[in-house]
Design a protein around this nucleic acid. Structure first.
Lengths: 154, 154
DNA sequence: GTGAATGCAAACTCTTTGCATGACT
DNA sequence: AGTCATGCAAAGAGTTTGCATTCAC
């Protein structure tokens, strides 16, 4: 499992365009504010907060307000174009979600609070098996590991 | 849902006393406010919010303020006497944690938002195996399933 | 008596919403 | 032109903090 981290940009390539298309197709108008938000989300490595997006926009001279960021995220989440990730810091994080259902989870570094994505087939299988055993309908799952990232482990 | 409730109290039996002892041993003073919070936490079935605790206290005629509830929870969490559980509703939930490391996770019903606890050995094993594979130090994990509880499944 | 714990209220953070203005089709 | 989308500011929810008072030791 050495390839746990190196993958993100590939999956996300074209996400902004894809999302813009889906949004248009769903009957929503195209706007530069939304495009800017899409661009920032697409460029990120891992799940980011609304505030992250907003400051990144501000840093680029954009005048998009934070309310618009939240509204864009709300729309994107409702269309399953982003996935909301909460890791217990009291803030919601979001990351692009592609239709191919690329599936990963996160480790939260207890020292620097950074998020490290990982994926594991064994874990997904264990969840599938569990879903069969429980007599509950399971539609999704989130797994959050707590620990130390490679930077902070030393 | 008479089934799911029955087993929890066994695990939690004596938790309030145990926690009170640990708190005392750590050099903190004993107070009736803290005792009342401990009692409410011990009596709960699943992870509850600070507000839940506060209203339960109020219902019993207690005058413990919500700030005290938060401060008690902060202390308890720092001593690992409670575990914080966040399931993406924007609220922190807490549940008693025993030293024997009784370990369960939660399903969040997408319809009624209720929490259903579950445990699964296979899942725990998958996480242990994963911990071996990743070159990250893993100290804990949270798993949240999304789906329908037995009440809402119909 | 001393200092920790409490209660209240104010402050803070994250998120949502109302409303007038501006922009896309 | 008709709406949808935006930006601002205000409102809400959850949580934390400052400070005077109370209470445990």
């Amino acid at each position: 499992m050495a390839e746990t981290t190196a993958h993100n940009h590939d999956h996300v390539a074209g996400w902004a365009e894809y999302a813009a298309g889906r949004i248009k197709a769903a009957g929503h108008r195209r706007s530069s504010a939304r495009d800017e938000v899409l661009a920032v989300i697409a460029a990120q490595e891992c799940a980011i907060t609304a505030r992250d997006i907003s400051s990144e926009l501000a840093r680029n001279g954009s005048e998009v307000g934070i309310a618009t960021v939240y509204r864009a995220l709300e729309l994107l989440e409702s269309m399953k174009l982003v996935q909301r990730v909460e890791v217990g810091q009291g803030v919601a994080r979001f990351e692009p979600s592609m239709p191919d259902g690329d599936h990963h989870h996160h480790l939260v570094c207890e020292t620097c609070e950074e998020l490290v994505p990982f994926e594991d087939e064994g874990l997904e299988r264990a969840i599938d098996r569990l879903a069969g055993k429980l007599d509950l309908k399971i539609t999704g799952h989130d797994i959050v590991l707590h620990g130390q990232c490679s930077n902070c482990a030393n």
